[in-house]
């Protein structure tokens, strides 16, 4: 799967309270959550980004609370992929479970600037910076996660396993 978009750069330790403040945890509506993505550090972010844009961040992205509202709000805001030096583990699981592609790549986290045009190949883990010509390599998803993603996310994977009717659609 190939993703193309503009990079939006963030720093280290971006926490889930910053990604989606608790004020909005009274809803699980993706559209509503997307409207407030990252507003604690950049109130204009949800309006500035274009569909398919890419978040590039430092270490420990998504640290803090287990709220799945965080990756949901990023995805619903139009972000197609998050690239970071490293991810906090609950966020990592949540992102995969809801189908938000994420890649760990310290070199890209350092080398990409806001506004750069990126092309990301999720199958190979190759990140191409079209603005600078640099190419970075992230480790692609391990096989068991590819299987989970291929099934359409965790719930469809589980539904298939336990033979629930709607799992196959």
């Amino acid at each position: 799967m190939l993703i193309r978009g503009k990079a939006w750069k963030f720093g280290d330790d971006v926490d889930t309270d910053v990604i989606i403040p608790s004020l909005y945890l009274v809803t699980s509506d993706p559209e509503e959550l997307g409207k407030h993505c990252m507003e604690a550090v950049d109130p204009e972010f949800p309006r500035k980004i274009g569909k398919g844009d890419i978040i590039v961040a430092g270490k420990n992205f998504g640290c803090g609370s287990s709220r799945e509202h965080a990756p949901i709000s990023i995805k619903a805001a139009g972000v197609s992929c998050v690239i970071a030096r490293s991810f906090a583990r609950i966020f990592y699981r949540n992102a995969i479970n809801i189908g938000l592609p994420i890649l760990e790549c310290p070199e890209a986290a350092d080398g990409v600037s806001t506004g750069d045009q990126l092309e990301v190949d999720l199958d190979t883990g190759e990140i191409r910076n079209m603005s600078t010509g640099r190419v970075y390599r992230a480790t692609p998803f391990p096989p068991f996660m590819q299987e989970l993603i291929a099934a359409g996310g965790l719930m469809k994977y589980v539904a298939k396993q336990v033979g629930l009717a709607r799992g196959s659609d």
């Binding site: 803090g64 609370s65 287990s66 709220r67 799945e68 990756p71 609950i90 699981r93 949540n94 479970n97 809801i98 996310g153 965790l154 719930m155 589980v158």
Partner: peptide
């Protein structure tokens, strides 16, 4: 489905936080 689930480790248990989809499964 709460990050502070790790609290229960103090009893000598393995306890960890997950998101809502992991929990649903």
């Amino acid at each position: 489905a709460d990050s502070h689930t790790c609290t229960a480790g103090a009893l000598g248990a393995f306890a960890t936080g997950v998101g809502s989809t992991d929990l649903a499964a």
